[in-house]
Simulated assay, not measured.
Amino acid sequence: MNILWDFDGTLFDTYPAYSNVFSQVLGEAVDKKEIYETLKISFSHAVHHYGITENQIKEIDTLESQLAPKDIKPFENAEEILKFANKNVIMTHKDRKGVLSILEYYGWDKYFADIVTIDDGFPRKPNSAAYKYLHEKHHIDLAIGDREIDLIPAKELGIATCIFQNQHVNADYYLSNYADFFKLMKDFTHS
C-alpha cells in the first residue's frame, strides 16, 4: 500500500503549538480553543477570520520557526503505519526545512520516498497538482489527512481517502486514532 500523508494534524500534533503561537500574536482575549478550531480549517481561514495583518503573519512565521522539533509530537501509533506501508509520501504546505527537521528528530525521514512542500512551487491545497505529481510517480492507494482540503485533491484523482480525527468531512474511511488503522485496512483490502 502506498500512502500519501498530510503533515500538520495528521502525522504530527502541531495544532496545539500553532495555537499557542497565534495566541501570542493575537493576545489572550482570543480563546485558544477557538484558534485551534479555526486553524484546523486552514491557515488561510484563520488569517481571514482574525483579520491578521502582514506584520502579524511575519510575527507568526518568526515564532513558528523558533519551535523546536521536540515541541511537535507525533501521533501515537502513526509510526506503525509508516512501517507497514510499502511507500509513504508527504504533501504539505509546511516548508521543507521544517518538515525535515521534525522527521529527522524522530528518525522518521527514512520512511518517506518523497516529500512535496510549499517550497516545490505547486499550488496550495485543494488544488490537485501536487497530488497528481505524487500519484503519477508513486501510484498512491490512500490519502490520509485531517481536513477537507487534504482529501479534495485525492477524491478528484480517484484515490481512496481517510480522514483523521474529524468526523465532519466526507471520506472513504474515518480514524479517530491510528491504533484502529489495521482494522480499517481489512475493509480497504476487501473493497
Rank of each mutant, 00 (worst) to 15 (best):
I3F: 07
L4W: 06
L11S: 00
L11K: 00
F12E: 00
F12W: 03
D13V: 00
D13L: 00
T14P: 01
T14Q: 02
P16A: 04
N20H: 13
V21I: 07
F22H: 03
S23T: 00
S23A: 06
Q24I: 03
V25T: 01
L26D: 00
G27C: 03
K33P: 14
K33S: 14
I35R: 00
L39H: 01
L39W: 02
A46C: 01
G51F: 03
N55Y: 11
Q56E: 04
Q56M: 05
I57H: 11
K58S: 12
E64V: 09
L67E: 01
L67Q: 01
L67D: 02
K70A: 13
I72A: 05
F75W: 08
E76K: 15
E76N: 13
E76W: 14
A78R: 13
A78S: 14
E79C: 07
E80I: 07
I81S: 05
I81W: 02
N88I: 04
M91A: 15
T92H: 10
H93N: 15
R96T: 09
K97N: 14
V99R: 04
S101Q: 14
E104M: 09
Y105F: 11
G107S: 10
W108H: 12
Y111E: 11
F112V: 12
V116Q: 06
V116F: 07
D119E: 06
D120R: 01
F122C: 06
F122E: 05
N127I: 08
S128Y: 13
A129D: 13
A130Q: 01
A130W: 03
K132Q: 08
Y133Q: 12
L134N: 04
E136S: 10
H138N: 09
H139M: 13
L142E: 04
A143K: 07
R147H: 13
E148D: 14
I149Q: 15
D150T: 03
I152D: 06
E156Q: 09
E156T: 13
G158A: 05
A160D: 15
F164E: 15
Q167V: 11
Q167A: 14
H168S: 15
V169M: 09
D172L: 06
Y174W: 13
L175C: 07
L175E: 11
L175K: 11
L175T: 09
N177K: 15
A179G: 12
M185N: 12
T189L: 15
